[in-house]
Simulated assay, not measured.
Amino acid sequence: MLSQCKFERAFLQPRHWLTWFGLGLLWLLVQLPYPVLQLLGSFLGSASRPFLKRRESIARKNIELCFPHYNDSQREKLISENFKSLGMGLLETGMAWFWPDQRVRKWFDVDGLHNLQRAQANNRGVMVVGVHFMSLELGGRVMGLCQPMMATYRPHNSALMEWVQTRGRMRSNKAMISRNNLRGMVGALKKGEAVWFAPDQDYGRKGSSFAPFFAVKDVCTTNGTFVISRLSGASMLTVTMIRKADGSGYRLHIAPEMANYPQDECEAAAFINKVIESEIMRAPEQYLWVHRRFKTRPQGEASLYV
């Protein structure tokens, strides 16, 4: 089922007032000039670090595992920049949901839009492989302004936040599809749609293979990319958006269509992880390192987060 965007009177009940207050505060903050938002985002991210010790521990472990050649100073710098990026990501969510199109367009440029247009030629579906950068919400809004598409997602536990995020995400896109709705994804691709799908998180042992990711040998990797590709016959390419190093906004990168995608499930998992690694290295400090990417381990192997 595609996500619907319907307001309910129950959202006005007192139990939701704190959520409304937070959303209102976020709306007010993102009215500030973009250079001020950059400074504020970095400050909020750094200030949150003492209160997010568990997340800091997860990020540190992920970085140690992925980049064993980094020394302590390099790791600390990456973690520090990652938390600044985390704070900016909160404000970018507000920018994605509340900014008018004209203001969003002012702060990004695109590299490779012709790659997506070529892949969609002759009404062929395109699986857009995404990566969980902190600017993901804004990246989806930007992508929709270039060429509206559909996206897979995990429905929010809060009905109010489900309405808010769906309304925000559909300002420039076509529809949201639950990541468990395989039939919906395949059907959309067979109709020639572009559908965003992010295979870079740990979705559990079911429907996954273990494949290398950076310096970690066995990483639980969803087979969803392989299954959807085989069932739909869609072309595949990556789309990622990162903040420019000079602070002048964002660049949306649309890669050429993937070639030589493996026909074997396990080889395909290793292949897609290599693709994701390459995208992460565009701006590793902006990636979602606070996610427990290595939570699921091979049978009998101890947790890496103890």
Rank of each mutant, 00 (worst) to 15 (best):
L2F: 12
Q4C: 05
Q4D: 11
F7T: 12
E8Y: 10
E8S: 14
R9Q: 11
R9V: 09
R9H: 07
L12D: 05
L12C: 10
H16R: 08
T19G: 06
W20T: 05
G22Y: 14
L29D: 08
V30M: 04
V36W: 15
V36C: 15
G41F: 09
S42Q: 14
F43K: 10
G45I: 00
R49L: 07
P50W: 06
K53D: 02
R54H: 06
R60V: 06
I63T: 00
C66V: 00
F67R: 00
F67A: 00
H69D: 14
D72E: 12
S73N: 07
Q74G: 04
R75S: 06
R75H: 09
N82R: 01
K84R: 15
L86N: 01
G89I: 04
L90A: 15
L90T: 13
E92W: 13
G94Y: 12
G94F: 04
M95T: 14
M95I: 15
A96E: 12
Q102E: 09
D111P: 07
G112N: 12
H114S: 14
H114Q: 13
A121Q: 14
V126A: 15
F133C: 00
S135G: 13
S135C: 06
R141L: 09
R141M: 13
V142P: 06
V142D: 08
G144A: 11
C146D: 04
Q147L: 08
M149Q: 12
M149G: 15
Y153P: 12
N157I: 01
E162D: 15
Q165L: 13
G168Y: 03
M170K: 05
S172A: 09
S172P: 06
S172N: 15
N173C: 11
N173D: 14
K174D: 10
K174I: 14
A175Q: 14
I177Q: 02
S178L: 00
R179G: 01
N180W: 06
V186Y: 14
A188L: 08
L189W: 01
K191E: 08
E193H: 13
A194N: 11
A198V: 05
Q201T: 10
Q201R: 07
Q201E: 13
Y203D: 05
Y203S: 07
G204I: 10
G204M: 04
K206D: 09
S208D: 06
F210V: 11
K217R: 13
K217Y: 02
T221P: 08
F226E: 08
V227Q: 02
V227P: 01
S229R: 11
R230N: 03
L231G: 08
A234I: 05
V239A: 15
T240N: 13
T240L: 04
I242P: 01
I242L: 07
A245D: 13
D246K: 03
D246A: 11
G247V: 01
S248F: 06
G249H: 09
Y250Q: 05
R251Y: 06
H253R: 06
H253S: 07
I254F: 01
A255N: 11
Y261D: 04
P262R: 10
E267M: 15
E267R: 14
A269W: 00
A270I: 00
I272E: 03
V275C: 12
E279W: 00
I280Q: 02
I280S: 02
M281W: 02
M281Y: 01
Q286V: 05
Q286R: 09
Y287E: 04
Y287L: 06
V290R: 03
R293T: 04
Q299W: 02
A302Q: 12
L304Q: 01
